[in-house]
């Protein structure tokens, strides 16, 4: 069986098992609408009497936050770290160590199938409220944004997943990893621009944020498709930095994996 067929099957099985959770994803999507309401109310009040905040209109800011919701369901890591940690803890991982399958690629394929399901389902709640927020949104129509946005999304997904993978592997050393996961999630949420668009930070801090990987996990693709990054050259540079971060993350993941395996005692199974 060649490698592609192998992972295609993993993807198809993953698709089926994630379709079981369709209601879960849908409910989560509708909860996200409440968060969007918080954003609209807060920023709507902040914009009162102002035409621009940080150089962007209210429409552009609403568009940014709406796009974030779609992107979270398309490329975000949900509980992959927890799942991986559980597989290590209860010994389910042992079966993969004995088979000719790469655990990272296996988990990444499952992640892709999960995001395929949630990435499509998120459009249900978004379409439901679309008539209400249609006039508030201002999507730029440039073709180059989509052209560069697509690889930026794939790279963001790789970054998000690989970070989650690394955190999951901490289960080789710690019995309980939820604390680490939620702590890193707080940092990631803030530094990837999910609380506020990063360009509203003081310039020095904004610059500093660009040196961190979190910037490329969500803010960069979101800013690209919603018109907060307007220079195609800067966008291509951003893509290049994303590639470097992905490479670095993969190396780190490989290192943690190999070190962790040596600690692994293969309980249960």
């Amino acid at each position: 069986m060649n490698a592609l067929t192998k992972y295609r099957h993993v993807f198809l099985v993953g698709l089926q098992s994630n379709l079981v959770y369709r209601w879960n994803f849908l409910i989560r999507g509708f909860f996200s609408l409440a968060r969007l309401a918080v954003v609209f109310i807060l920023w709507g009040a902040a914009y009162a009497g102002l035409t621009q905040i940080g150089g962007y209109s209210i429409g552009q800011t609403f568009t940014y936050f709406t796009a974030l919701i779609a992107l979270q369901f398309m490329v975000g890591a949900f509980n992959e770290d927890y799942q991986i940690g559980e597989e290590i803890r209860n010994g389910l991982i042992n079966q993969f160590l004995l088979k000719p399958i790469n655990y990272y690629l296996y988990r990444f394929t499952v992640f892709l199938s999960a995001r395929a399901v949630s990435g499509v389902l998120v459009f249900v709640p978004l379409l439901v409220i679309y008539p209400l927020i249609r006039h508030q949104l201002a999507f730029p129509g440039d073709a180059w944004r989509l052209l560069l946005g697509a690889p930026a999304l794939v790279l963001a997904a790789l970054l998000q997943f690989t970070l989650a993978f690394c955190f999951g592997l901490l289960a080789f050393w710690f019995l309980e990893i939820q604390g680490f996961v939620i702590l890193s999630y707080a940092a990631e949420t803030l530094l990837s621009g999910q609380i506020f668009p990063l360009d509203l930070l003081p310039p020095a801090l904004f610059k500093a944020a660009q040196f961190l990987p979190f910037y490329y996990m969500m803010y960069f693709p979101a800013a690209l498709v919603t018109g907060r990054i307007n220079d195609p050259v800067a966008a291509v540079q951003g893509l290049a930095v994303q590639v470097v971060w992905v490479g670095l993350f993969l190396l780190i993941a490989r290192f943690i994996w190999l070190t962790g395996l040596r600690k692994h005692t293969a309980v249960g199974g």
Binding site: A46, I53, G179, L183, A186, I195, P202
Partner: peptide
């Protein structure tokens, strides 16, 4: 963990009021 989430909320206020 809780401190981090609280800081996030305080930062949001800080950032919004930089602009209004």
């Amino acid at each position: 963990v809780e401190l981090a989430w609280m800081s996030v909320n305080v930062l949001l206020v800080e950032v919004i009021y930089r602009h209004t």
